Each structure stands twice: as C-alpha cells, then as structure tokens.
Simulated scan of single mutants.
Amino acid sequence: MTQPQVPFDDRGLAYGDGVFETVLLREGKPVLWSYHLARLRRGCQRLGIPVPCQEALDATWQGIAETPLEVLKLIVTRGSGGRGYALPESPMPRLLSRRTPFVPATARWQKGVTVRLCRLRLGHQPALAGIKHLNRLENVLARGEWQSADIAEGLLADMHGELVEATSMNVFWQRQGRIYTPRLDKCGVAGTLRDALIEQGIVREATLPVAALPTLERLWVANSVQGVWPVITLVCHTGTQKQTWPLEPVDDFQVAAHRLLGYAAQ
C-alpha cells in the first residue's frame, strides 16, 4: 500500500495543528464510530478546522478487512498555508488514514497490570481540554519516564495534583461501590469508551487527588482499542510500591465496558 506523503508545510506536521482518532475495527466495521465522529467534530470545531465530509470519513474504513480486528488511525490537519502561526484564509484540511492488524493484550485483561505515577504534571488549557489534538508532547515526555515492560501505563496528574488520565488511556476507580473517572474540563483526552460509559450511567465524573489513590477500592485504565486493564499494583516514579489491589474473579466493570467493544467476557 502506498503511504501518503505529507508536505513539508503541512500545519499538522509543523505545529500539531489538527486532530486524530484511533478506532477499533471489528470485521471491518468501526466500533463506537458515532462517538469517534462526535469527538473528531468537536476537535475540528474547537480548532476552527472544516470537518471532512461524512463520505470521506466513511471511506477510510470501507473495504475488505485483512484480519478480524484492526486499528484505524485518522488524522485531520488544517492542511498547508498561512504565514507562521497565522491561519490560512481558506483552509483546505488534509485527511490521512491507515489500517493495521490488531491483537488485544488479553493477558492484561485477565492478570491485571502495574502502573506508575509519572513525574510530569499536565498543564491546564481549557480551550484544548477533552479533544484529541495532534500535539501530545506531554504524553510523549511522560511515556519516556520508564522503559520496563513490567509497567503497563503511567498515571498523569495536573499541576494541582488532581488525577487526569494515563499516558494513552483514561482512568477509572471505584469508591463506595460506584465507578468514577476524572473530570476533563481543564486538560486531558475524553476517550470514546469513557464517553459511552458515562452516557450509559455506568460511570460518573469526579475529582481525585493522587494522594488519595491508595484509598480506592479498585482502579482501572482503559480505552476503546485495548479495553479495560485492572490495576493490581501502583508504584511511584521512583519504582517504590505504593499500593496493591486484589484481582477480582469477576470484574463487572470490565464486562460492561467490553460489551460495548464486542470483546467476550474473560
């Protein structure tokens, strides 16, 4: 397959001026497609980028599936033009896409994972909060804090010490039998699985200081591609163990989330 060539003056390449989506395809059909479209449109509207037409977006996943599960990555940039940071008068967005075979990490569903608290703190920018824009340097720096394969994810807090997200997943916790996820009105990415779980009333938004993590009944990281990973061990950025949680024989939250993604109960 011929790879698309991005011009040197593309604003997504130069400035991170655009948005992207990472979509699970099951038998060639996009999972949670309406949620991905809604977030992409929110992101484009927030940045003032014309939204690609529905026909063009649908064309990115239509065709013969190579494997039962694939991941579709969509990128929408503002295109080329404008002088420096100045916006082009008539932007011509550029839509890029790629499909790749995918196999979920089912062992992490079943055995749980270890996560670490990242040293990096997220800055507040409400104008960009929630959308999946192309400038993900904070997440890149946070992910660079560890190399051990034993660490599955890193948890990120903001400058005030409030839990926000993981480097590439959303965070969920249980307290007094209820499931919560951080509010994302100042920073962070609102995942599509997160949106679906909130809409169904399974999850509520709340704030949580990272200092309170050891007091939680359960903790999970999840996204719409990998599914739900139960957290069994939390370590500090120094590698010191901070908290452990038992792995439940039946994880009702995971079952509910995986039902939305079409993953069988494990």
Rank of each mutant, 00 (worst) to 15 (best):
I179A: 10
E145L: 02
T167N: 04
G81A: 00
R194K: 12
A157V: 09
N135T: 11
L32I: 03
A142K: 05
D58I: 06
L137E: 08
D10I: 01
F253L: 12
N223K: 02
A56L: 11
G43H: 03
L184S: 04
V235E: 15
H258D: 09
R116E: 10
I232H: 13
V140M: 05
N170Y: 00
A206E: 07
G18Q: 00
S168W: 13
G28E: 02
D58T: 08
D9T: 08
Q5Y: 10
E89S: 08
E162I: 12
I179K: 01
S90Q: 15
I64Y: 11
E55I: 09
T2F: 12
G63E: 00
Q3M: 13
V189R: 10
P230A: 08
V250A: 14
L134D: 05
M1H: 14
I198E: 11
F102V: 01
R259S: 15
Q45G: 06
D10V: 04
P50A: 01
T207H: 14
L69G: 01
T240G: 14
N223D: 00
S34I: 07
E205W: 01
P126T: 02
L193G: 03
L24E: 06
V231H: 09
T100W: 09
E27S: 05
P4T: 01
L117Y: 08
G239V: 05
F20P: 08
V6F: 05
P52V: 04
R108W: 13
Q62G: 07
M92H: 15
A86R: 11
D195K: 12
K186W: 14
E248G: 12
V71R: 15
L141N: 08
P101R: 11
L137G: 04
G123T: 07
Q3E: 14
G201C: 03
I202E: 14
W245M: 04
H133T: 09
I151C: 03
Y85K: 03
L37K: 13
A222H: 01
H258C: 07
R42N: 11
G227S: 04
L32T: 03
G188S: 06
C44F: 01
C118Y: 03
A65C: 06
Q176H: 15
I232P: 10
S34Y: 12
Y85L: 13
T114P: 06
